[in-house]
């Protein structure tokens, strides 16, 4: 199912990372993460070593999915942002370009207002990168589908993964 596949190339990855680094700086955040809606990490910036990114990705995606379900129950299309307030650290979660989730973790050095403002600005830029990514994922410059490195996978390659 090709529509079910997200392909991230080096160029877009670097642009997304740049964008995240900028957001992290502008919002005075501890860390910013970009996840896919199904719970996979796309890119991150800031104090990322302080957090278990894989768990964050899956729980954030679960959280967004549950909130999405709640929205639909009351006839809303979606709740586009979520905010969790802790004693020291806080989270701001928002949807970018329909398929990605932006998570900002911040503390008293920032504020919800500042984070909101900066997230809004950088979301526009990230959405643009995502749109280009989707086009690139389905087409190369000569209009052909890009060659997948997995087209050449052999049964032996697959078996080798399970050989322990």
């Amino acid at each position: 199912m090709p529509a079910n596949e997200l392909v991230l190339y080096q160029e877009e990855f670097q642009r997304l990372e740049r964008s995240l680094r900028q957001l992290r700086q502008d919002a005075s955040a501890r860390a910013v993460f970009l996840f896919d809606k199904s719970g996979q990490q796309i890119a991150a910036a800031g104090e990322i070593d302080q957090f278990d990114a894989t768990s964050l990705a899956s729980l954030t995606a679960g959280n967004v999915a549950a909130t999405d379900g709640l929205a639909k129950l009351i006839g809303e299309r979606e709740f586009s942002t979520l905010h969790h307030e802790g004693q020291r650290d806080h989270m701001h979660i928002s949807i970018v370009g329909k398929r990605a989730i932006l998570l900002v973790i911040f503390d008293e050095r920032s504020s919800l207002g500042l984070v909101r403002l900066r997230v809004k600005r950088s979301s526009v830029e990230m959405e643009k990168i995502f749109e280009e990514m989707l086009v690139k994922g389905t087409r190369t410059t000569d209009g052909q589908a890009p060659a997948s490195p997995f087209a050449e996978i052999t049964d032996e390659d697959i078996d080798a993964l399970f050989s322990e």
């Binding site: 596949e5 997200l6 392909v7 991230l8 080096q10 990855f13 896919d36 796309i42 997995f150």
Partner: peptide, 15 residues
């Protein structure tokens, strides 16, 4: 959703 990351050379799949 299979997520192929060429930058970090990872394939992520969900079961």
């Amino acid at each position: 959703m299979t997520f192929i990351n060429y930058a970090s050379r990872e394939i992520n799949c969900k079961i």
